[in-house]
């Protein structure tokens, strides 16, 4: 058993709140904040529900601080499901049995990371420092949401945390690697974003007609590596043809 696990067990668990999200979903809220311990509990409850299925539960959506449980009220009612979820949410967080670790190559700066210089200036550092700090991070997929494959990571080091843009950009490129607030992100599809763009990866976390269609799972570990822009271009062609590009490391 890891010391981290013992530490979590020793602390009494804050009670969860069960909130109705309409008539066919319940939000199990562990915290109101971005909170690593809460996210561990979210992912633990998610694993439990995947293993010990409750009749009527149709799908679960983990986020940083809550688990959204969709259900069919024709199979199980709100009160019965709330009772079961409340009991499961009280259980101590078991260590994840299998943790996958991915290494994702990133081309930083220049046209692929248009905010790198500004981020460096704001944080009184050089662009190389920023890249070094971002690459040194050991991240966990806290949730995937908003659009397909948009992976929100926890584990951003304190010195890289800065407020999001006042005016979000309406279009940012596919594969954008960015930071925003206390979060780091791997964005899959082109789309709007208010985060700071550090670089791009060729890795598609969502790609139709590829097995698997979705690469990352909530709870996976992620590290980044630096590639030059020429390598990015080669990897991007290979990824378009269906290669996964991200390396699966021994965990």
């Amino acid at each position: 058993m890891r010391p981290e696990f013992l530490r979590i067990m020793a602390k009494p668990l804050a009670p969860s709140r069960l909130l109705p999200s309409g008539d066919s979903a319940i939000t199990v809220e562990f915290s109101r904040n971005v909170d690593d311990a809460a996210n561990q509990r979210v992912l633990a409850l998610d694993r439990t529900l995947a293993r010990d299925r409750i009749a009527g539960v149709t799908e679960t959506v983990p986020t940083y601080r809550s688990l959204l449980v969709h259900y069919d009220p024709l199979v199980i009612g709100f009160d019965a499901l709330s009772e079961k979820l409340a009991a499961l949410a009280k259980l101590p967080v078991p260590p994840a049995t299998i943790t996958r670790r991915w290494r994702i190559p990133v081309a930083y700066g220049g046209e692929h990371g248009i905010d790198l210089e500004d981020v460096a200036k704001t944080l009184n550092a050089t662009p190389d420092d920023i890249v070094a700090r971002h690459v040194a991070g050991d991240y966990r997929v806290a949730m995937i949401g908003f659009t397909p494959g948009w992976s929100y990571l926890s584990g951003l080091e304190d010195s890289l945390q800065m407020p999001r843009l006042q005016n979000p950009r309406l279009l940012t490129p596919a594969g954008t690697i960015s930071i925003g607030g206390v979060q780091a992100g791997v964005q899959c599809l082109a789309g709007p974003s208010g985060w700071h763009l550090l670089g791009r990866t060729a890795v598609r976390t969502y790609q139709l007609h590829r097995q698997p269609t979705f690469l990352l799972e909530p709870g996976d570990r992620v590290t980044f590596s630096v590639v030059d822009h020429k390598t990015f271009a080669e990897q991007d062609r290979a990824a378009a043809a269906g290669e996964i590009i991200a390396e699966l490391m021994a965990s």
Binding site: S21, G22, T27, R65, L68
Partner: peptide, 11 residues
């Protein structure tokens, strides 16, 4: 601003 949370149809 709240910390991101799941949505449903009709939220």
């Amino acid at each position: 601003n709240i910390v991101s949370d799941g949505t449903v149809n009709g939220s």
